[in-house]
């Protein structure tokens, strides 16, 4: 009896960590955009959806399946969807978002927040419904033979407990973590990363230092879209998806970003990880339908109790 409980808890914990790693990567994408530009991007979920379909079509129609096979192929396609979405995000910022951010909005009501919100809402509507037209409403999924097999950990604790780790989820989580690590290097070590952080911290001072903030913003937007898209592709190897899937995840992403503290990239990853854990662990005590309600409750609690998030810096006025 007790061993059954322990096994369930451990299993939920593992499931939470695996889902959390992907959510974490997804949140990092949004965290980049939100942290650097302070723009609430409603279309982030739909960028993820595009990433899923990009990987899907790259895999099936662009010959990747034939070249790399069924096991490696999906992951190659997923990684390739990143650059595609980078270009897409870059273009969206260049032609749309940049018109309602930055200097131009200073004289607008609420510094243009209204305009940014509704613009990204418009983009989200176009992408969702355009997705419906182009991709159809049939559930799609990136199937890999790995998703029906698992590694068994154990038996542990005198043969009573063993934990199963689904192979495709495990690999997806691993790729997420590697991608996150690469991104961390990019942000902290490279010139581009430094200019992004400078633009986030103090756009005006960054301009004086010769940084082209508009370019930083475009790169952040493209990079954010790409990272979330890759996370979406990884998710798609385990869950079927449809053109409207973005809405479900945009909330998860914002919850994660706020949890981690706005402006903190690594924080966003841990925020997403927390969401994954809360979601999976809540199934132990709550009915499955309330999984997402639990996420929102935790989200609200964190916002009220610690609005700067786990990793946000307290900015003390002196």
């Amino acid at each position: 009896m007790t061993s059954q409980v322990v096994e369930n808890v451990l299993q939920a914990l593992v499931a939470g960590l695996l889902a959390g790693a992907i959510y974490g990567l997804m949140c990092v994408g949004l965290g980049l955009i939100f942290g650097v530009m302070r723009v609430i991007n409603f279309a982030q979920g739909d960028f993820m959806m595009l990433g899923m379909y990009a990987a899907y079509y790259l895999f099936l129609s662009a010959g990747i399946q034939d070249v790399f096979g069924n096991i490696i192929g999906p992951y190659v396609a997923i990684l390739l969807s990143g650059p595609l979405l980078f270009l897409f995000g870059y273009a969206i910022h260049r032609f749309l978002i940049s018109r309602v951010t930055g200097r131009r909005t200073a004289q607008l009501e609420g510094e243009g927040h209204f305009a940014q919100l509704i613009l990204t809402l418009g983009v989200a509507l176009v992408l969702q419904n355009g997705g419906l037209i182009v991709f159809g409403s049939v559930l799609a999924s990136i199937r890999t033979p790995l998703s029906s097999s698992a590694w068994e950990i154990g038996p542990l604790w005198g043969d009573f407990i063993s934990i199963f780790v689904n192979k495709s989820r495990g690999i997806a989580a691993l790729i997420s973590i590697v991608a996150m690590a690469l991104l961390a290097v990019l942000i902290t070590r490279t010139r581009i990363g430094k200019s992004l952080r400078a633009s986030a911290d103090n756009p005006v001072a960054a301009t004086y230092m010769g940084i082209d903030i508009d370019r930083s913003y475009r790169i952040a937007f493209g990079l954010g879209a790409a990272v979330t898209a890759v996370a979406g592709g990884l998710l798609a190897t385990n869950y079927p998806f449809h053109p409207y899937i973005g809405i479900d995840y945009v909330i998860v992403m914002y919850a994660g970003v706020v949890l981690g503290g706005m402006g903190s990239i690594i924080g966003a990853f841990w925020g997403g990880m927390t969401i994954g854990l809360v979601q999976q662990l809540s199934t132990l005590v709550l009915p499955t339908q309330l999984q997402n309600a639990a996420i929102f409750v935790v989200f609200l609690l964190i916002v009220f109790l610690r609005p700067q998030g786990f990793f946000g810096r307290m900015v003390e006025r002196t």
Binding site: L96, I118, L119, L121, G122, V123, A124, L125, V126, L127, Q128, N129, G130, G131, L132, I133, S137, P243
Partner: peptide, 13 residues
């Protein structure tokens, strides 16, 4: 299907 949302979104943009 979805043309409503597309046009709607475009109008907003």
């Amino acid at each position: 299907p979805g043309i409503q949302g597309v046009i709607y979104g475009l109008a907003i943009i």
